[in-house]
Design a protein around this nucleic acid. Structure first.
Lengths: 155, 155
DNA sequence: GTACCTGCAAAACCTTTGCAGCATC
DNA sequence: GATGCTGCAAAGGTTTTGCAGGTAC
């Protein structure tokens, strides 16, 4: 299965995504734990960028494990390529489920920090390939974010 | 002068940029200080994303002022729209000089963190306008970053 | 049984703020 | 002279790590 391609297509079923991610982690030697599954499921259900703190306090995980565990899990899952860390200008990092064939672009309010997803075709794919070739980078992907004042903050 | 437009064109002269930024700040009631000028000049000369710590330790500023001052200056300059804060996945924020008509897209190594600028036409401008209209956002701009393993880290 | 994973707690880092004194306008 | 800017120092918030014990395989 390809690492990434950027067509927006219908979101896969949550359990399908979780099963895929767990399988991939296990293939690479990670142990299947309750916390891993719950973390992946939370990210798959929410399907939006979430912070460590938010995840650690979520119903599914708060009773399940320590924030430090969530932190270390996020590192492992990112290394496995089943989640991605995003830089969205906040002080804390955001993480989102990374499922093959799905791509997300976001619109962030510079005032209130609201994050919404843009369900529009992303025009960057061709450039991405060209950049990879020209600069000799491997495993390339991109992040595209739009920033501006949302209607509520424009007042 | 328009807030932003995204044609890549030859970089303006450093002193021109600094003078423009200082003028704009003064028009909006900020006081002209040595630290402000040095900070702007450093960013204009380097013309790349820099962190607070890096700026505060730079030759021009280390002898000039306290890190807290650099921090507060960065906030003010960002509010004036003469610099921009970038989210590049590091724990600390990056800032870059923002001159009308100039646009930057970056390529960042996911392993060593090297940041290079891509001098290629950015295909996002049309989408940016459409997103602004569709979602009702004002003062919209975008950030496009490519991530991957640089040749040295592929090794 | 072994290697990995977890909880707890502390350290490390970067950012942010309070306040008294100084510089710009 | 008034207001904003600065330096110093301390607080705040998130991330990161050490270590002893528990768990998946």
């Amino acid at each position: 299965m390809p690492e990434t391609h950027h067509h927006n297509h219908p979101t896969a079923d949550v359990e399908t995504k979780v099963a895929w991610a767990v399988a991939r982690c296990r293939e690479n030697g990670l142990r299947r734990t309750k916390a891993m599954e719950e973390l992946l499921r939370t990210l798959a259900v929410e399907n939006r960028p979430m912070r460590l703190a938010e995840l650690a306090e979520s119903e599914a995980l708060a009773t399940q494990c320590d924030p430090a565990t969530v932190y270390r899990l996020l590192l492992r899952l990112e290394a496995q390529g089943v989640i991605r860390r995003l830089g969205l200008h906040e002080r804390s990092a955001f993480f989102i489920f990374l499922y093959p064939g799905e791509h997300h672009d976001f619109l962030i309010c510079t005032d209130c920090g609201k994050i919404e997803e843009i369900g529009m075709a992303c025009p960057v794919e061709a450039l991405e390939n060209e950049v990879g070739r020209k600069f000799g980078y491997q495993r390339i992907y991109h992040e595209l974010e739009f920033f501006g004042l949302c209607p509520a903050c424009v007042g």
